[in-house]
Write a protein that binds this DNA or RNA. Structure first.
Lengths: 163, 163
DNA sequence: ACGATATGATTGACACGTCAATTGGAGGAC
DNA sequence: GTCCTCCAATTGACGTGTCAATCATATCGT
């Protein structure tokens, strides 16, 4: 337990030390990246990644409005998460909630001018940050490889239907 | 804004649609992976990734005890985060806090038998899950590529010293 | 029409994370 | 010894995320 006993690589089920190192590099780097991007978005635009995802979906939506459940599905969130988040965004004036005409249970989420403005201001710096922190860090080959790795992982993960 | 206007690729600063797709695949997959692993750890061992990190560091420490600030540095957390987390773990009996003999300001974090037991029970399933979800999903080449991508991203990100 | 059930959305409780402010001892200058 | 400053750690406020429970409306079967 305390020594690095030579692995019986006869092939039971545990990753080797090298595989584990790669795993940690991978997941920690992804985290560091997400965290840096979050911090830039926050300081440059006063938006969280969640805010950005919601505003992006809304600004692409017909009439800048969506049914709450469609929005949740579109960005892959649980309804409960969206509901909490919309509450916070509504307090800040980024969105507004209206009753749905078609279904009295439903709610429609509407982009406010304030929200649209915040999104416009955030888009360019955000995309630039992605380019700086991700795209520019990799060679074209590495970028392609990253894409393939992601696809392979997702395929192995997702047959059960997760997103 | 609503049409996909042909990008002036004359090379300003924004990622192309393809680069953006890879970025999203990458970051969302990493998230999905983290989330699935978290969920397994939780259901199989009733531990969060944070708990696991703390218990791992403590169980490797001399005497199963560490100064709080060393622990924070070891797992790369802010002190405040650790403090909050230790509070929750202490309530569950996984660790204990003692005053440091050497420095009356300091605190020592001690692994309890309960905590040691929880960690023992969690280790094997957790490593197996990493193998199943990550290692087994990739060809050896892809695994190596994932490692290189992580290193390149970190290098580009970290010269300033982030972790 | 009416009761059972399904669905859209919200709520409450709680874990987790960050930031800023605070507490209280350590250590140096004098 | 007395300040002043530094440092370890905690605390409070608040945003974020999950899970389970709740509420109200729709909808289906009869």
């Amino acid at each position: 337990m305390t020594e690095n006993t030579p692995q019986r690589r006869s092939g039971r089920q545990l990753p080797t030390a090298e595989q584990l190192r790669i795993w940690r590099d991978f997941i920690e780097t992804a985290d560091a990246l997400r965290s840096e991007l979050t911090s830039r978005l926050q300081t440059e635009s006063a938006l969280s990644p969640g805010d950005y995802a919601v505003l992006l979906a809304l600004s692409e939506a017909d009439g800048s409005r969506m049914r709450s459940s469609e929005l949740a599905a579109g960005i892959g969130w649980q309804r409960s998460r969206l509901s909490h988040h919309l509450g916070r965004m509504e307090r800040r004036g980024l969105i507004r909630r209206e009753e749905s005409a078609a279904d009295n249970r439903g709610a429609e989420v509407v982009l406010t001018p304030t929200g649209a403005e915040a999104f416009r201001g955030a888009t360019y710096p955000h995309l630039r940050a992605i380019r700086e922190l991700f795209v520019d860090a990799l060679t074209p080959d590495q970028l392609a490889a990253a894409g393939e790795v992601a696809v392979a992982l997702r395929a192995h993960l997702g047959p059960s239907g997760k997103v």
